[in-house]
């Protein structure tokens, strides 16, 4: 366990208080960040979008989940500035009379939540399995990495269909209600963990031969302790970069799955389901139903990607 001496005590080492913050503000990272306006803009956009998503219940003018407030008379209204638009619905309404703007906010919340949880699950699985494979080596490594190879042969859509199918079979009818989120998280998480496992395994294989690991073995620390408190901090930075980039990919995967109808049902909006619904009405001229959710998705993914790319450039020593 790292010994943190943040509490001032009557010891030989006086502890400077804002040590961490000072370090952070002095760092090259922050300096480089302030120097690149594009990345700052991207980070700002990503931050605003995520904030909007999580504040949806307070910001949205309508509640798309509240069926009582919906009126079929309001369906397929164009945006308010277009001829025939209703001032109550800024970006127009969909086929059920739901306000597009509100639905985008709620939908983005689902998308962001699902992709974050999925990446979290993938991180948890990938980092632990990769660490064990890389540190232990031998047959443990072989078994884990062969499973990873097999996993890699399944496209995430197939994995999702599989998970969905299993869930349908196990959970009957009414129980299925709230499990859509879980199915999506598991499906996306399962299809992404391999990348983390491979990255971590590679770094762990290098780290385990370093002398600081031998020094830890010498004092009789258990393998688990060495892996998680000595090796893990040294393998984390490439993984964090990968996680940021994968966050954008996970949003897209969620949208794809929902678009294909494997993900969330159309009664629970996500960016993907909105695009799916809107797609049906595109030929009838209701372009706003697909354009606005699509643009939001593109903006969100682009912003997160830009930040992720920049992080990779800064943290990956091979690219420096």
């Amino acid at each position: 366990m790292p010994l943190r001496a943040s509490k001032p005590s009557a010891s030989a080492i006086p502890v400077p208080p804002q040590d961490r913050w000072k370090r952070f503000f002095d760092s090259d990272m922050l300096h480089a960040f302030v120097r690149s306006p594009l990345v700052m803009l991207a980070a700002l956009i990503a931050f605003i979008l995520v904030a909007l998503a999580f504040l949806a219940p307070w910001l949205a003018p309508h509640d798309p989940y509240d069926l009582k407030s919906l009126n079929l008379m309001d369906s397929e209204n164009p945006p308010s500035w277009v001829k025939g638009g209703d001032p109550r619905f800024w970006l127009g309404t969909d086929d059920q009379g739901r306000d597009i703007f509100s639905t985008i906010l709620y939908g983005m919340r689902s998308s962001v939540l699902i992709s974050m949880s999925a990446v979290g699950l993938a991180l948890l699985m990938g980092v632990s399995l990769g660490l064990i494979a890389g540190y232990r080596g031998g047959w443990v490594d072989t078994v884990i990495m062969r499973i990873a190879d097999i996993q890699l042969t399944f496209p995430s859509i197939l994995t999702a269909l599989l998970v969905d199918g299993i869930a349908q079979a196990v959970l009957k009818g009414s129980q299925l209600g709230n499990s859509h989120y879980l199915i999506l998280v598991v499906a996306i998480g399962l299809s992404y963990w391999v990348q983390y496992a491979r990255t971590v395994r590679g770094v762990a294989m290098v780290e385990r031969n370093k002398e600081y690991v031998q020094a830890a073995r010498l004092i009789g620390l258990s393998s688990r302790k060495i892996m998680f408190s000595h090796v893990l901090p040294n393998v984390l930075s490439p993984v964090l970069v990968l996680a940021t980039i994968n966050l954008a990919l996970a949003i897209i995967t969620e949208a794809t799955l929902s678009f294909l109808g494997v993900g969330l049902p159309s009664s629970e909006p996500s960016l993907g389901t909105m695009i799916q619904i809107g797609n049906k009405f595109l030929l009838s001229g209701s372009w706003w139903m697909v354009a606005f959710p699509g643009a939001t998705l593109a903006l969100l993914v682009l912003a997160v990607n830009l930040v992720g790319d920049w992080l990779r450039d800064k943290l990956d020593p091979r690219l420096r």
């Binding site: 010994l3 943190r4 370093k210 600081y212 031998q214 004092i219 009789g220 000595h230 901090p233 040294n234």
Partner: peptide, 20 residues
């Protein structure tokens, strides 16, 4: 290579004290 780059020096030196 024998000092963990992500650990502070005081934690590195204290590691055996804690482990034993």
């Amino acid at each position: 290579a024998s000092l963990n780059p992500r650990w502070r020096v005081d934690a590195i030196i204290a590691d055996p004290i804690v482990a034993f």
